[in-house]
């Protein structure tokens, strides 16, 4: 397990992704090897699969999987259309309250005081003055009724209202030619998305769900809603945004979930 190391940016994941994956997966691969022995006994196919591939070389196997995941990022970036919209649904389809899920138990979601909350801005942004909730609320809002898809496999239709991320980035003079937008959250969650997704019309900083101010467990005061991403790519309780050319990690991404995770 890699120790936390100081990062050039507080926005970035505190653990270097490649190293942690290599270290963390040693035992995984050991267990796969064990199961492979069992499976080999019942499967002629598995023997073929292992021919010429030294499964005992664990880092090499994880290296191949990690490279395949990076390749899949590129394929997904290619498949992503900046103009293709996610299907919208009628108000009657909206799930109230929405399904909750997070990396921490619900009773550990921190309280955020909207009056003292500030959105920090960092990286390739001209005007880095922190934004207040009033600043956010004064910006134009849009509403989307789209499908929320979790990497686990469940989904629901929700209604999110918020400021288009593109609007906010333009407003603060962000470098829109930069590659990534990274997020840091009050609940310590981190994440980040590619710039084309950040500029997509259905990517917003959400303040309301189904017309009501966000509950803290669903991301008060603001969360990211991106209709073209899986749920875990949409951080809640955001407290800082950085525009950067260094690919940000993220809580789940650092643990091995695919980085792009577009839908």
């Amino acid at each position: 397990m890699a120790e936390k190391t100081p990062s050039p940016s507080m926005m970035r994941s505190q653990r270097p992704i490649d190293r942690s994956i290599l270290v963390e997966n040693r035992a995984l691969l050991r267990s796969i090897e064990r199961r492979t022995l069992l499976r080999g006994g019942i499967s002629l196919g598995a023997l073929t699969m292992l021919t010429g591939c030294d499964i005992t070389n664990k880092d090499a196997v994880q290296g191949v999987l990690s490279r395949m995941s990076l390749w899949n990022d590129r394929v997904q970036a290619f498949l992503f259309s900046p103009t293709r919209l996610a299907p919208e649904f009628p108000a009657s389809a909206v799930l109230k309250p929405p399904r909750w899920n997070a990396f921490i138990p619900r009773d550990q979601v921190p309280d955020v005081d909207g009056a003292t909350w500030r959105l920090e801005l960092a990286g390739r942004i001209t005007d880095k003055r922190p934004l207040t909730l009033s600043d956010i609320n004064a910006m134009p809002h849009v509403t989307q009724r789209t499908r929320h898809v979790c990497v686990e496999g469940w989904d629901y239709i929700g209604e999110w209202t918020g400021v288009p991320l593109r609007h906010l980035l333009e407003r603060v003079g962000a470098d829109l030619t930069a590659s990534y937008v990274a997020f840091r959250c009050a609940d310590t969650y981190t994440g980040g998305i590619d710039m084309p997704t950040a500029l997509h019309p259905q990517t917003q900083l959400t303040t309301k769900y189904a017309g009501q101010t966000l509950d803290k467990a669903f991301g008060f005061p603001i969360r990211l809603k991106a209709a073209t991403k899986l749920g875990f790519k949409q951080p809640k309780q955001i407290v800082a945004i950085e525009v950067t050319n260094t690919r940000p990690g993220g809580y789940w991404e650092d643990r091995g979930f695919n980085w792009f995770s577009g839908i």
Partner: peptide, 20 residues
């Protein structure tokens, strides 16, 4: 159950294999 990580959710290894 039989694997390395201390995190509850272990699906990402399976997802990596699936998408490779």
């Amino acid at each position: 159950d039989v694997s390395w990580h201390k995190y509850q959710n272990g699906a990402y290894g399976a997802l990596q294999w699936h998408f490779a």
